[in-house]
Design a binder for these strands. Structure first.
Lengths: 122, 122
DNA sequence: CTGAATCCGACGGGATACTG
DNA sequence: CAGTATCCCGTCGGATTCAG
């Protein structure tokens, strides 16, 4: 799952990691919420390319599992915010370990893939 | 991903974790190889219910990414062994962190799920 | 703005049968 | 023993459209 260097870069090292948090977007969402509550639209910015459907689904799953909390502010304009629960924040710990691994080893990963892609026989 | 307590128990806490290693079986396979090389058939035992197809696929992916190594011993009976590469072993570190998280928080996870399953409105 | 509904192609993964 | 081949269905996730 994406992390810090260029968390949302399409060629982000962490995206190569065999370690994943939930579905395709869950890890990134959690990271996005690390610094505080975010609105639906705000989340769509860093998660370039995510569709409303995909975002909604990931959000629902995360919410169901008690990792994030959804707050709907009814006002002149509709406003919904999502934020990490304590449980969700506790997840940051292992995520960090996973991210660190990815950052340290993604080149080896790529090397191995290229080696098996190009020439069989190592 | 499954881990120690009852790594392959269908209700294993770690299986509830949002943190996953590769595909459905990859994490378990890596853990199975933690203590040394294992044969194809040997892997199928703890991975109760895995089909040859699924095992082969996971193994190939792991191999492609340089996490495990495949050795084919041609002899009277065919024998193929798989073992972790140094890169694969390095993955055990973050996996352990993920497993620890699952062991500590799976009850909260379940609570949250049941709460949202049974009664909307928390 | 925050979704829900629908359509659709790609992939995952189980069952079963077959092979060297 | 160690796979491969085929079928099949459920889910993932993107695109598009509609609604409160």
């Amino acid at each position: 799952m994406p992390l810090d260097p260029d968390m949302f870069d399409p060629v982000c090292p962490s995206d190569l990691s065999p370690i994943r948090i939930g579905d395709k977007w869950a890890g990134m969402i959690v990271r996005c919420l690390e610094q505080g509550p975010r609105r639906f639209s705000e989340l769509r910015v860093p998660l370039r390319g995510i569709t409303a459907k995909a975002l909604t689904k990931s959000l629902r799953t995360l919410q169901r599992d008690g990792l994030i909390e959804r707050t709907s502010h009814l006002g002149p304009v509709r406003r919904v915010e999502y934020e990490l629960t304590p449980l969700g924040r506790s997840l940051l710990q292992p995520m960090t370990a996973a991210c660190a691994w990815a950052r340290e080893h993604w080149e080896e990963l790529l090397d191995a893939r290229e080696a098996s892609t190009g020439g069989r026989r190592g």
